[in-house]
Design a protein around this nucleic acid. Structure first.
Length: 1055
RNA sequence: GGACAAUUAGCUCAGUUGGUUAGAGCGCUCGCUCGACAUGCGAGAGGUCACAGGUUCAAAUCCUGUAUUGUCCACCA
């Protein structure tokens, strides 16, 4: 006999059980020893962002998906649940930036791209490890051997391939658009990353200048210096006549040329009914400018400051400029009205900074381009079509409409992001040329030498960035430290240079004296492929010996030995006069490029130097994170390697498309729609059959759990307190698709109690029947029907019914209902009734068989919900083979159920009624009572059950059954079904109270009878309702009438 | 402004296609150490299913409108 502890302690078991599962290898479907034709069942885990550890919402997702996977694994499917994490480009970069600022008071620009990315990876390793640990703690049966990361090598390849393919088909294109620009994050935001905050704003009405015929209104006066048109509604009588006219004048010191255009979008009733058009800084205006061929004037730059060329406004922040405009308007008496209005401010979803709409070059995915591979349809059309044709279904169904609505309004998707962390755009530029591909294009040069200035550190200035770029482009890069840099000697430097073995395939970028050295070397006869000379001195008074040693410049010789030269000049360089650079340019017949702010090279100026090198330079931007997560279903299954000549092979063939995508409804549009489009494009398949959308997990007060509010429940905390099974169960029961779920510790504690109940049920069965020592049946066949008591047949019937319902519920995604039914069976039917009865019935051989069957199969049904405790009990009491891979209980569809269920429920009612009488009349628990039951057709059945009735907490010492006859005059009574139950204890009865109570019951029974009679008198009811319904009503009527008769008789007797 | 959802017991929610006198858990009341379980056992109280109309023999369930709450989308210069 196995000794089980009095209470279940989850902590001890969970880690060891999870380890056993993992070691078994059964999380990987390849190890399941399935027949060839076993169907696949695939779920890819929505990859959690690596920005933070998991919260209860993730736990809920894991619980649901693990349930589905475990259920299907037990049903013989090739069940694959594929784990991974998401690099979440912007979100991650932001978290790291904030952390950096807080801990080191540095911005990412202080660190530079490389160093910053190192920080990101450090952070990422940490959170990723936490996430994986938490996921295991939840008991998730994920196939860790296939773990993926949206930013690992395989996925990088997939992303680059996808981009290239889409570019080749013209789906991806580069275009200038107004984008939502966050001046703080220095990045564009997708439409769905912009938040709108209601606020009060000053609304100014004014004219550009005195004789301008139309007043306009604005909340953003600072942009008005870039206006090129005024738009009015073409139907507007007031302004109609001006349409087409052009006006010139000066607005706040800025010359403007304003054309009046007509546009139906303009609301005649808002403001003055006329709208100043600023094409560069408003989405709507941009469209108008496109339609009317207007000039586009950029007013605000990427830092949120006013561009050059706007007089005294230039260099001011937008806010300052706005104030100045208003001040000037007031001074020149142009302001007509100033009022406060409600207005929605667009802000960055990450940092709450007001966004600035700016025109910018970006990469887009076209959703409207018709594609041959989609049968002449566009991504958008196809993605809508599959939803309409039910090729993909949504649970709950209402989200289908939301999906289609959103899709129909979808515009081209901007996929480039101006941040550092993320998939680099696989595009390379060389001057005007562009190359798109999965690998960097081959370059003319094989080696690059970066020569530092005479007194500077080779690692300083712009070298590290360039080095990285050149290495990315496949060059061997050398950054030598030239000897004695503080006091350079020409011979020493030259001999150091010779050792670098420069030749025709070498690219040299030299800064200051470094570039002078390269020129001198060429003069000495060394061949060089290309020289980019940045701020090059031809003489310097502080190191006269150096230049004396070089001697007279022989530019012809230099030209002979260097194939190509570009000269860079910095206007801020205090040492090299522009004339020097110009002279060099002329003598060498080389192009001269001038750069501003040489001491603060920005990415763009690096870009210029890189371009001058004549090598391919990669686009500095990265891709929107949804681009890579949109490929999640197939990139994780080995695309593109597993997709050859339009055919799927390997994992992709075996597991794609997946069966279910289970995710939060909040990312239906962000993610689900993109997955559908990208999968259609890449593989020509809808990535999943069903989309199950869960709600958010809220705290017990209905608030969204968030770290800042401090109301979040850490899954690990509650797991440690109550156990994983309890946490999983509280996330499954009461959780319905698409609806939010409130979870508090009370609920989890309740579920812990249930888990413990199951444990104790098992413990009782084991201590009483020693099922661990009994030879095991296969749990597929029921015990023989002979010698079974009513209760035995009842529990088997109930269990069969339960198996059927639970199976149906899981298949219909009704996990909550399945869980509740299991709970009800376990607690009420099995523990409260059957086990209690088993204590009084003596057929222990049958009981052993039945309990073994019921408990074993019950553990199976419970397993997808609470895997740990069930696995533990299974291994203790049944077999050391894993419950995880045991087969799902069989359903006996021929089982006769009616009579058994009816009889048992009768029995339950009798027992409950007797207990009720005891409580109602406050009969002391220890006092034995006599019971008399009057019955009619049920009499013979009840007579057989007297022993049972007496033994089940009814405290009966004498029980008699008889046909209806004269009733005991004074007794406690209860009337149920067609029976009357009397407990003759007249001494205690308080007659007046009893009469009052009886009166009430008689009255309510009469009312009820009246209701039923009315219904039955209604001809249309009798004619139209189904016969079964009518019969039920009739039955009800007789029962109630009998009851009334007996009540009245009893009433007379005692009064 | 548009769309979608929610409104059922004190609280949190179920209630599949209209068909018993509307269910569960928690909480509450009363009573219990009864051969596993006080993380337990037994009994109970508690609801005009937001409101107003309509369809139907029959409505928590279907339709219309109103109110309140929530979510998403759009956005006006």
């Amino acid at each position: 006999m196995k000794e089980l502890s009095k209470a279940y302690s989850p902590g001890e078991n969970e880690t060891t059980i999870y380890e056993k599962w993992e070691e078994s290898g059964y999380f990987n479907p390849d190890n399941l020893n399935l027949p060839e034709d076993a169907k696949p069942y695939t779920i890819v885990l929505p990859p959690p962002n690596i920005t933070d550890k998991l919260h209860l919402g993730h736990s809920s997702m894991l619980a649901i998906e693990d349930l589905l996977i475990r259920y299907h694994r037990m049903n013989g499917y090739r069940a694959l649940w594929l784990p991974g994490t998401d690099h979440a480009a912007i979100a991650t970069q932001n978290v790291v930036e904030k952390k950096l600022l807080k801990e080191e008071k540095k911005t990412r620009h202080d660190l530079g791209r490389e160093k910053f990315l190192e920080k990101v990876w450090e952070f990422l390793d940490e959170t990723q490890a936490t996430i994986l640990k938490q996921t295991r703690r939840m008991g998730a049966s994920l196939d860790w051997s296939r773990e993926a990361f949206t930013f690992d090598e395989q996925r990088q390849k997939a992303v680059a391939t996808m981009f290239t393919d889409m570019y080749k088909e013209g789906v991806i294109y580069q275009g200038e658009r107004i984008v939502n620009w966050c001046p703080r994050c220095h990045s564009t935001l997708a439409d769905d990353e912009v938040e709108h905050q209601d606020q009060k704003t000053m609304f100014y009405t004014f004219r550009y200048w005195k004789d301008f015929p139309i007043s306009i209104s604005t909340t953003r006066p600072e942009t008005k210096i870039g206006d090129t048109a005024v738009a009015v509604n073409p139907k507007d009588e007031r302004y109609k006549k001006f349409i087409g006219q052009e006006f010139e004048g000066e607005f706040c010191g800025v010359p403007l040329k304003i054309k009046v255009i007509g546009d139906r979008e303009v609301d005649m009733d808002f403001g003055t009914g006329a709208l100043g058009v600023t094409p560069a800084h408003s989405m709507v205006d941009w469209k108008m400018a496109e339609n009317n061929d207007l000039e586009i004037k950029k007013v605000i730059d990427e830092d949120g400051k006013i561009h050059d060329g706007f007089g005294e406004f230039s260099g001011l922040t937008a806010k300052e400029a706005g104030k100045l405009v208003v001040k000037k308007l007031k001074a020149s008496d142009l302001l007509e009205k100033e009022e406060e209005i409600d207005n929605a401010l667009s802000t960055c979803y990450r940092c709450d900074t007001a966004i600035e709409p700016l025109p910018s070059k970006q990469w887009f995915v076209s959703v409207d381009k018709k594609l041959e591979r989609l049968g002449g349809k566009s991504l958008k059309e196809k993605a809508i079509e599959v939803a309409k044709n039910k090729e993909v279904s949504f649970i709950p169904n209402r989200f289908k409409k939301q999906y289609i609505d959103w899709m129909e309004n979808l515009h081209d998707w901007c996929i480039s992001r101006q941040i550092w962390f993320g998939h680099r755009i696989p595009v390379w530029y060389k001057n005007d040329e562009i190359y798109v591909g999965t690998e960097a294009p081959k370059n003319k040069y094989t080696k690059a030498i970066l020569l530092h200035a005479w007194d500077s550190d080779p690692e300083a200035a712009f070298f590290p960035w360039l080095k990285q770029q050149l290495e990315n482009a496949g060059l061997k890069v050398i950054v030598p430290k030239l000897p004695n840099a503080k006091n350079p000697d020409y011979e020493e430097w030259l001999s150091a240079f010779r050792k670098l073995d420069a030749d025709e395939n070498t690219l040299i970028i030299g800064r200051s004296l470094g570039s002078t050295l390269a020129l001198a070397a060429a003069q000495e006869g060394i061949k060089i492929g290309k020289l980019v000379a940045v701020c090059t001195p031809l003489d310097n008074k502080s190191i006269p010996d150096f230049f004396t040693a070089i001697g007279e410049w022989k530019f012809d010789k230099i030209k002979q030995n260097i194939q190509e030269i570009t000269i860079f000049h910095s206007s801020n360089d205090p040492y090299i006069p522009k004339s020097t650079s110009e002279k060099l340019s002329q003598e060498l017949n080389a192009p001269l490029v001038e750069i501003k702010n040489a001491d603060h090279f920005t990415g763009i100026q690096y870009q210029e130097i890189l371009e001058a090198c004549g090598i391919w330079a990669q686009d500095p931007d990265v891709l929107d994170t949804w681009f890579s997560s949109g490929m999640w279903t197939f990139s994780t299954l080995g695309w593109p390697d597993n997709f050859k000549d339009g055919k799927k092979i390997g994992d992709l063939a075996e597991f794609h498309p997946t069966q279910v995508l289970e995710t939060g409804y909040e990312i239906l549009t962000l993610w689900v729609s993109r997955m559908i489009m990208m999968s259609l494009f890449a593989v020509g398949e809808i990535p999943f059959e069903d989309v199950y959308l869960h709600g958010m997990v809220l705290d017990e007060n209905g608030k969204k759990m968030s770290k800042s509010k401090g109301n979040g429940i850490d899954p690990i905390d509650v797991i440690e307190e109550f156990g994983t099974d309890a946490v999983r169960l509280s996330l499954l029961i009461g959780n319905t698709p698409g609806n939010n779920l409130r979870v508090g510790e009370e609920k989890i504690a309740g579920m812990r109690n249930l888990v413990n109940k199951l444990w104790n049920i098992s413990r009782y069965i084991e201590t009483t029947y020693q099922i661990s020592e009994v030879e095991k049946s296969d749990l597929d066949t029921l015990p023989d029907d002979e010698n079974l008591t009513l209760a035995d047949r009842w529990i088997l019937t109930k269990f069969n019914e339960l198996t059927l319902k639970v199976t149906q519920d899981i298949q219909g995604y009704r996990f909550s209902e399945a869980g509740e039914k299991l709970k009800e069976f376990t607690w009420n039917d099995l523990a409260d009734w059957y086990l209690e009865i088993s204590k009084t019935e003596n057929n222990s051989e049958e009981k052993t068989a039945i309990l073994q069957f019921v408990l074993g199969n019950l553990l199976k049904l419970w397993h997808p919900f609470i895997p740990f405790v069930t696995e533990k009990l299974w291994q203790e009491l049944f077999t050391s083979d894993f419950l995880m891979i045991s087969s799902w209980p069989k359903i006996d569809s021929d089982k006769q159920t009616g009579e058994t269920l009816k009889n048992f429920s009768l029995l339950q009612n009798v027992i409950t009624a007797i207990r009720n009488i005891r409580t109602q009349y406050k009969i002391a628990p220890k006092q034995k009572i006599e019971v008399v039951i009057y019955a009619h057709d049920k009499l013979s059945f009840l007579e057989k059950q007297t022993e049972l009735i007496s033994n089940l907490k009814t405290g009966i010492d004498k029980i008699t059954m008889q046909e209806s006859g004269d009733k005991i005059s004074r007794a406690h009574y209860e009337i149920i079904d067609e029976m009357e139950i009397y407990v003759p204890l007249q001494d205690i009865i308080d007659i007046p109270t009893e009469l009052k109570r009886l009166e009430e019951e008689i009255k309510s029974t009469e009312n009820f009878i009246a209701d039923i009679s009315k219904k039955l008198d209604n001809k249309s009811f009798v004619e139209n309702a189904p016969e079964a319904v009518v019969n039920k009503e009739k039955e009800k009527l007789t029962t109630q009438e009998n009851k009334l008769k007996n009540l009245k008789k009893y009433f007379e007797n005692i009064s």
